[in-house]
Amino acid sequence: MSAPDPGALPGRLRDMVAELAAIPDLEGKYDALIEMGEELPDLAPESRTEGRRVRGCQSVVHAYAEAGPGGTVALKGHADALIVNGLLALLVRGLDGLTPEGFLAVDPRFIEATGVLGALTPSRVNGFYNIHQRLKADVQALAGADRSAGPAA
């Protein structure tokens, strides 16, 4: 299996990935990632629960999904480390507001198209996928709840 076609990603994520991909140098990519993270709304201390902690990250990372308006998913998160926070922002901002099906249709290997993957330490690459897994678990639970609440076939 190959990485997904960046052009087929949902709109906001596609723009974020394209922005990173267009930056020629690694330091510039990191600068952009840090800015993307800074644009995330901060996560209130009471939202940083143990249950929302992303395991397998070197820094402290929280991420979760909850039901948004009109059957969409609302994604939230925060990482203490700024570059990780930028990676988290790709997921949280890039995939926020999609339907659960829309979220689940996105292959997280889209990160390969940004050009930062090769420079990240293996633990940070894993950290990115762990954040995605953490969000995905919530989204799957929301999708399941949605189905069970729906009319009987």
């Binding site: 140098d25 690694l26 330091e27 990519k29 990191y30 070197q58 820094s59 203490d80 480390a81 700024l82 570059i83 990780v84 420079a119 990240l120 330490t121 940070r124």
Partner: peptide, 20 residues
């Protein structure tokens, strides 16, 4: 400063150090 962030930014400048 997160030490791994610092290591990444040094790496982007061609400076290879270890973090951990």
């Amino acid at each position: 400063v997160d030490p791994f962030d610092a290591g990444a930014l040094l790496d982007a400048q061609g400076i290879e150090v270890r973090v951990g």
